[in-house]
């Protein structure tokens, strides 16, 4: 039987490495000043609006439409990126072709290129007299200044999220899994569909959610190509800016609160997905 010796409390350092108190203190202070305090200002300002007013703002036709455009097109862009992201990842990880490393590097351009630059570049490309726009115009397809234009911008900024999330998982996938599948008589298609894809599904969903979350809040690359017609091609972040410029702070605050809450939910979902992805891709 273990006799529980009452531990004599010792005033000793908890670790041999110094600096815990001060570094954690500074971290929390800085985090509060730059991130938490400003974000809480949003909630304080929102609490000053009456509930009826809040609901009236959020459910007004213009707001609803802007939210619908932002969320709907973000979802569509994330879906496009999911499909083409997998194709790009597959080509990069599994095949060799000329300039593969260069192609791999340019995937990150949407991360590195300022959104305003991307916005004007996409607009000039897809405008009716642009390189791509002039090819599509004879077919009756208008991209710039329509919903399609917004979609193009959101595809642009979301692609690297899908690629960079799925790429390492597919690259680390044990080749023996596929060999085992083949040795058990599976066709190549069956192996890809039943062995490879299920292994990367958590990563795929994570990338999808990341691309979606980024697109919902996107502003810079969209406003140039969007046309910004209220009720048609006006995204929610733009409506916040417009309300702010009209000094309608309550409206701006209410819409921003909805956006921020959506971000929190997405963050939660992404965290869960990432954890799932990590446990799934952990080697056994």
């Amino acid at each position: 039987m273990v006799t529980a010796a009452i531990p004599r409390p010792l005033r000793r350092p908890r670790s041999v490495i110094p600096g815990f108190g001060i570094t954690l203190g500074l971290t929390l202070t800085w985090l509060s000043v730059i991130v938490l305090l400003p974000l809480s200002a949003l909630f304080i300002k929102t609490s000053e609006i009456t509930l009826e007013r809040f609901i009236a703002i959020v459910t007004s036709t213009r707001t609803l439409h802007a939210l619908q455009v932002s969320f709907g097109l973000s979802l569509a862009a994330a879906c496009v990126n999911l499909v083409f992201g997998v194709i790009v990842v597959w080509a990069l990880v599994r095949y060799d072709f000329p300039f593969r490393r260069v192609v791999d590097a340019i995937i990150d351009i949407p991360f590195a290129l300022p959104t305003a630059v991307a916005g004007i570049a996409l607009t000039s490309l897809y405008a009716e007299n642009g390189w791509v726009g002039s090819l599509l115009a004879p077919l009756g397809i208008k991209v710039a200044f329509t919903e399609l234009g917004i979609l193009v911008a959101l595809i642009f900024i979301g692609l690297p999220f899908v690629v960079r999330t799925v790429q390492p998982v597919l690259a680390d996938l044990d080749a023996e899994l596929e060999e085992a599948s083949a040795s058990l008589g599976a066709s190549r298609g069956q192996t890809v569909w039943r062995v490879v894809l299920p292994s990367v599904i958590p990563a795929l969903l994570t990338g999808f959610a990341l691309a979606f979350a980024r697109a919902v809040g996107e502003y810079g690359s969209v406003i140039f190509i969007a046309g910004n017609l209220p009720g048609q091609t006006e995204i929610a972040p733009l409506l916040i800016v417009i309300r702010l410029e009209e000094f309608r702070y309550a409206d701006a605050t209410a819409i921003a609160t909805v956006m921020l809450l959506a971000s929190f939910v997405l963050l939660l979902v992404i965290n869960r997905l990432q954890r799932w992805s990590e446990t799934r891709s952990a080697r056994t």
């Binding site: 010796a5 009452i6 531990p7 004599r8 010792l10 000793r12 350092p13 908890r14 041999v16």
Partner: peptide, 23 residues
Amino acid sequence: AGLDWPDGGEVRFDGQDALARSV
């Protein structure tokens, strides 16, 4: 070594309290 500290008890080097000293 002084990399961890006990919840109770003593460590002495040549009779001198070692727990009073850091690693």
